[in-house]
Amino acid sequence: MSQYILRRLLWLIPVLLTLSFITFALMHLVPGGPWDREKQLPPAVVENLNRKYGLDRPVWLQYLSFVANTLRGDLGISYVHQDRSVTDIILNALPITATLGLLALILTVALGLSLGTAAAFHQNSWLDYICVFYATSFASIPGFVLGILMVIIFSVTLHLLPTGGWGTPEKLIMPVIALASIPAAVLARVTRASTLEVLHQDYIRTAHAKGLSQHIILYRHTLKNALIPVLTLLGPEVAYLVSGSFIIENLFSIPGMGRLFVQGVFARDYGLIMGTVLFYAFVVAVANLVIDVLYGVVDPRIRYD
């Protein structure tokens, strides 16, 4: 197993290199650069800026020095926030997005799993109908629409919650719900379906026949097997939640990674774009690896040698 993990981690190196090359090339191919603006800068200022950022050198040399600096852990200075290093900017936004993402993930799992299993155990009861209703309706309401509705109801009308920003726990409530609503709805559906499938298996009937308690049947025999499709779903979900959603972060003015990345692209902040893309790639790869390892834990039939 540890060999498998090591192999997967080593594979990350060529993946990140290729990705950085493609991103770098695309970034320089796109029309418009960091110094283009509505009011033109004098040519001498442009040259001063080019010199400061090494943009006066050939593009291949810029790429090589980017790779060399990155290997030393230096992502350079931002082209927009000229007093701050890219590493510094990312490290500022990362805990914010991670906190938001983890809370949303917890809510997703808690709500999705409990609703899904409860619905499956009470198929065709009112609880099941509520679950199905929730899953269908919330899966089709985009997070930002729900977000705007919550702002109108809870902030503008009832004055219960702040409209946005970061720093106090109450500022987390609406963004976490807006982020988690769709994943939780999807998860509830998948959990319900896979639990129902497991409940109709012979070994569950055997367990009932043996006179095992409901608890044991639920936790030991049903959930564990119902979780495999759920895990498959959670992989990309974790990456999505942890890397941050631009729309939600913009709506609630959250100083996280999603907003940062989009701002970086719009401003052609070459340093910030490279930094965030590499970071995203790393997070997605690691999240997938963790999920793959979890498969093995949940299902002993799955082995990595």
């Binding site: 109108i152 503008v156 004055h159 946005g164 920003g165 913009n250 609630f252 907003r259 701002q263």
Partner: peptide, 18 residues
Amino acid sequence: LRMFTDLNAEYAAYLNNE
């Protein structure tokens, strides 16, 4: 000095007395 990048968010914050 807050940094609401979205104009509607700024307006909502004003209506909520933030």
